[in-house]
Design a protein around this nucleic acid. Structure first.
Lengths: 104, 104
DNA sequence: ATGATACATAGAAAAATGTCAATATGTTTT
DNA sequence: AAAACATATTGACATTTTTCTATGTATCAT
């Protein structure tokens, strides 16, 4: 399987949970620390910590420590690339496998 | 959790598997029957059948029977709406929760 | 009708995921 | 140094997902 599908699928998977998708939405306009995010959900702190790690490892979110807090923000460049890639996946393409099939 | 996140997350989840994402890519330029898709993967027929059902149930793909074959194609309208929604999730928004947090 | 072809369903096993309570780590405050 | 605070890690358990083999169903060809 080509790497592009693997990478993109990993990011999609990270956002394929309603609460993680909402977290991305919350982060889309700026940084938030874990405690601010936690307030919006009925989950325990370790659960959020795990969810944030999923987003960070997918490359969607970046984290930094400031004193006691960890601040999270979107990696807009990565997210943008992913969005563009996804657009291409949805688009018609002249070299698509289905055209090969149709020749038979 | 708001329905928009639930619906969108469900579609993302359906595409969060590399092979299913590739199937969407293959379908982006036209219809294909199950056997044509199957040729491109090293999976059994029941596995593909299951994957296609995931895509259909997410609303991403439509199916129809023609003789012995089942043809699959993308539901472009649904996919387009999802893509637009995702774009809005990634965008900065004036009414974002993070602005509320920042006021405190 | 029979057999062949294309796909779906059922059942099962292994792997991944989601979630929690308990505890550890790093940072600030006192 | 001790306490308090914010977050991470560990270990456990339940649920979901992935994938297979075996079997069922629908359609076509003979």
């Amino acid at each position: 399987m080509e790497q592009i599908y693997i990478n993109t699928a990993k990011m999609l998977k990270a956002m394929s949970d309603p609460k993680r998708l909402r977290i991305v939405d919350m982060l889309s306009c700026g940084e938030l620390c874990a405690c601010e995010i936690l307030e919006e959900f009925h989950i325990t702190q370790p659960t959020l910590s795990h969810d944030m790690r999923v987003l960070v490892e997918a490359g969607i979110v970046m984290d930094r420590r400031e004193g006691k807090n960890i601040y999270y923000k979107l990696d807009k460049e990565t997210l943008d690339r992913m969005y563009q890639t996804l657009g291409k996946v949805f688009e018609d393409k002249p070299d698509c496998i289905c055209h090969k099939c149709r020749k038979n």
